[in-house]
Amino acid sequence: MTTLLTTGTSTGTSPRTGRGLALSVLRLHRSALWLWLLLVAALSAAMLWAYGPGYDAAVADVREQCRDSVEACHYPNGPWLNKYDTTVAFTTLTVAYFPFLVAAWAGAALIGRELETSTAHLAWTQSVSPTRWLAAKLAVPALLITAGTAVLVPLHRLMWNRGAELLWADWYDENTFHANGTVTLAYALCGLALGTLAGLVVGRALPALGVAFAALLPVFYLGNEYRVSLWPTVTATDTRIPSLPAEALDLEHGVITTEGTRIGNNLACTDSDSAADLKRCMTDAGISDFWTTYHPKSHFWPLQLAETGVVLAVAALAVTAAFVLLRRRTATEGVAV
């Protein structure tokens, strides 16, 4: 807090200005800043290794095993392949779930600790209005999170696209989907907003950490649960058993009876050995067509942008609630906003 109050005298810049407030936030949370920079640097280095020499070494392992054994090609193994898989899995998991770290930090260190120690109240009465204080607390971390994510997500996509044939996960797997697009930033900003709101509501560092984490958890869960509903699906109907496009996300499939009834998750006749057997089976079962509903790989970005918009809307609501709560609280204390 001393930093916040003395910024104007040490730099010649009034703490009431946007620059003075930004510098105050950076100085007060410089440990978190350095940890964030180190995390971005470490993840970037790991993903660049997996994109370049790590991928080449893993491919060499696979080729060596496939030359020795055909069976090994289906279950490849090797020291460099294992290191490559571990690096990809770790970086994907970290990029996908770092929004929870943001939420916990925002609730505990960014807001909760300052309210608990009353340093925020001192700032409001002596140097800066509560509204400008909260705006700076949100704007500076949001800018740094956006800059870091702008580095991590493209690097992850670069690594993932090159090693697609070595990876078991598909584009629609939860962690992969998060780490490969804009939803990562959206959830991080949502975590920042929910953490800030939790800090203001609770007013204590440690409880706010838990509340912020718990607040982001249902948003994360609901996003994974209802993601496929955020963009129109594709439904294919055919008298033959439909074959999905490569890398499509199969959502539901079934049969259409001769009476026009659509029955989902019905695998009747799908084990037929020939076209004649299939036709005979369909006649006996009263089936006229097969159908399947899916998301092709081309829906990746529409789904990303739709979910990003929803999550950012939640973040905006949390920010609005935070400002309203702060205004009401400081109004009762007689502090100018």
Rank of each mutant, 00 (worst) to 15 (best):
G191M: 04
T184R: 01
A248N: 07
E252T: 11
W231A: 00
V255K: 03
S298F: 07
P242G: 09
S229I: 05
D271F: 11
I263A: 11
G181K: 01
V202T: 03
M282I: 08
R240P: 00
R227P: 01
L197N: 02
L217V: 12
N180P: 01
G203S: 09
L278S: 07
L312K: 11
M282E: 10
L192F: 05
F213V: 12
G223E: 06
G203L: 07
A212K: 06
G309I: 13
H295A: 00
G223M: 02
R240E: 11
V255L: 02
L244Q: 03
H178T: 09
A306L: 10
P207W: 02
V228G: 06
R280N: 10
G199Y: 08
A198H: 00
H178D: 13
T283V: 11
A236H: 15
T176M: 02
T257D: 11
T293A: 07
T235A: 06
W291H: 11
D170T: 02
T257Q: 08
E247I: 07
A193W: 00
Y294C: 01
T293P: 00
G195A: 06
L217M: 14
S243G: 12
D277F: 04
L244N: 00
A205E: 09
A179Y: 00
F300R: 06
G203R: 06
C281E: 06
V310H: 12
H253E: 13
S288N: 10
D271W: 11
E252Y: 08
V311M: 06
G264V: 11
L244E: 03
A208D: 04
V234H: 12
L249I: 00
H178P: 03
T237D: 15
T283Q: 14
N175D: 10
S243A: 14
G195W: 04
K297E: 07
R240G: 09
E225K: 13
E259C: 10
P242Q: 12
W301V: 13
T308C: 12
L216E: 10
T176Y: 00
A306T: 13
S272I: 05
T233Y: 06
A179N: 01
L312D: 12
A315M: 07
C190M: 01
V255T: 14
Y172P: 00
P245T: 10
S243M: 13
A268E: 09
P207N: 03
Y294P: 00
S298A: 13
R280A: 15
A275E: 15
V211H: 05
H253Q: 14
N224Y: 07
A208L: 02
A313Q: 09
A285P: 05
H299I: 04
T292V: 15
F290G: 06
E259A: 15
P207C: 05
D289E: 14
L192I: 04
P296S: 05
A169L: 08
L249N: 07
T237E: 15
A193N: 04
I287N: 03
G223S: 13
A186C: 02
L200S: 01
D273W: 13
Y221A: 15
L200Y: 08
E174N: 12
G199Q: 05
